[in-house]
Computed example of a mutant assay.
Amino acid sequence: MLHTLLIACALVLIIEGIGPMLFPNKWRLYLQQLVEQPVNQLRSVGGVLVTIGLVSLFFLL
């Protein structure tokens, strides 16, 4: 179980690192736009992403 969790974390780091590694200028602009979004909108997007993740995990397990 721990081994699988570590693999999942490693894959997240790899996927998250691809954007800044390949497109640093576009990544910077994306983060600037993200900072300017209202807090409620960010919270809603985060909630949707967590929900999608939980549903996906439920069906994959």
Score class of each variant (00 low, 15 high):
L22C: 02
W27Y: 12
G46R: 08
M21Q: 11
I14E: 03
L22V: 10
H3E: 10
I18F: 12
G47V: 10
G46M: 11
L5Q: 01
L22M: 05
L11N: 02
S44Q: 15
V35N: 09
P24K: 06
F23G: 00
E16L: 14
L60I: 08
L31S: 03
V35H: 10
R28C: 06
L42P: 08
Q37T: 11
Q41W: 14
L61P: 02
L57V: 10
S44T: 15
L6Q: 10
T51E: 11
Q41N: 15
C9P: 04
Q37D: 11
E36K: 00
P20Q: 03
C9Q: 07
L11F: 04
I18P: 07
V45Y: 08
L11S: 05
G53S: 05
M1C: 12
C9A: 14
L29H: 15
R28A: 10
G46K: 09
P38Q: 06
E16D: 13
L42R: 15
L6H: 05
G17L: 05
G17I: 01
L6A: 10
L13K: 05
Q32M: 07
K26F: 13
I52F: 01
I18L: 15
N40M: 09
I7Q: 08
L34S: 14
V50T: 07
M1V: 11
V48Y: 06
M21T: 14
R43N: 03
G47Y: 07
Q32C: 01
M1L: 11
L2M: 11
L11Y: 05
F59E: 06
L34I: 04
P38K: 07
L29N: 15
L31Q: 08
G53R: 01
Q33D: 04
T51A: 14
L60F: 05
I18C: 11
L34T: 07
